[in-house]
């Protein structure tokens, strides 16, 4: 007799089933790879889903040029380890206009680099299905998100066009021009993600673990000075503090938390004991209420 499946085994099997279904019923799938912990788990699940084949799709990083340096390092390594093609797209308009979060603000920065950049990339390569690492537990409004989310030819999310999902029988059919976003991690929680990384020994960006890093404090948020592009106010001096990150994005927009947790179990312990929600460190949510929802309609995911 085999022991009953654990919750992580069930989640893993479910994610694999979702990925296989998406690949079997699409022509040009792609995996949106953001180098964060969720992406790392998703990448491992893709390897599991198609083993011994290499996952039959490329990784796509919609880059903003403003990610932490440590993220760029892991990006190349992870793609090489998995034997997968890595595509990087940087919105050429942003490059031309030099869009950055300091002068243009986080809203414009995110919209232009990420939302517009993603649409451009999907159109450029003609992808009809894109895996994303979003989870339903991330915030209240995602609790109703589908696993397979249909987008119009303009990449818009229309709440009225979303389909009921029964059993594991997903309706994956699309009309010409429509694409889909697929969320294999829908039913994972933050704790599940960390446990799985721990259990499977998955490589993650070291920034998730505490270490002394140069930071400045702005509006109560600790921002790491990751390179020389960061403008410092007169008299502002980066100071070394032991910090880690709960979520990773563009370094000027990502708040660090003070922590001594320099191992994965310690991070998990801290996460469970000190309870502020994960997205607090992610500044895009603060721009306006319900902003996640709006971003989604505009095609952010």
């Amino acid at each position: 007799m085999t022991a009953p499946l654990t919750h992580l085994q069930r989640l893993e099997a479910e994610s694999i089933q979702i990925m296989r279904e998406a690949v079997a019923e699409s022509e040009r799938p792609v995996m949106l790879y953001s180098i964060g912990k969720d992406s790392s788990v998703m990448l491992r699940l893709a390897q599991k889903a198609f083993h011994p084949s290499v996952p039959p799709f490329p990784l796509l990083h919609v880059d903003t040029t403003w990610k932490f340096r440590a993220m760029y390092e892991l990006r190349e390594q992870a793609a090489a380890d998995a034997g997968m093609e890595l595509l990087v797209h940087q919105n050429p308009d942003c490059l031309a206009q030099g869009i950055d979060p300091f002068t243009h603000g986080s809203a414009v920065h995110t919209d232009m680099w990420k939302t517009e950049g993603l649409k451009q990339a999907l159109d450029k390569w003609g992808f009809d299905a894109a895996f994303g690492g979003a989870r339903r537990d991330e915030e209240k409004s995602r609790a109703k998100e589908r696993v397979f989310s249909i987008r119009s030819a303009q990449h818009r999310w229309d709440p009225k066009q979303q389909r009921p999902e029964l059993w594991r029988t997903y309706n994956v059919r699309r009309s010409v021009g429509e694409t889909m976003r697929v969320f294999p991690l829908s039913n994972w929680t933050e704790l599940d993600i960390w446990q799985y990384i721990h259990l499977e020994d998955i490589a993650i960006v070291p920034l998730y673990l505490a270490a002394p890093r140069p930071v400045v404090e702005r509006n109560g948020t600790l921002i790491m000075v990751d390179d020389a592009r960061m403008p410092l106010a007169s008299g502002e001096m980066p100071e070394m503090r032991s910090v880690r990150f709960r979520t990773l994005g563009c370094y000027p927009l990502t708040g660090a938390v003070e922590s001594e947790a320099d191992t994965l179990p310690a991070v998990i312990q801290e996460m469970l004991l000190t309870t502020t929600s994960e997205r607090q460190g992610r500044m895009i949510d603060f721009d306006s209420s319900g902003s996640m929802e709006k971003k989604k309609q505009e095609g952010y995911f």
């Binding site: 339903r136 609790a143 109703k144 709440p159 009225k160 389909r163 039913n187």
Partner: peptide
Amino acid sequence: QGITIDVAYRF
């Protein structure tokens, strides 16, 4: 927004 198919999943 007129989401009519409302099944929310919580954990």
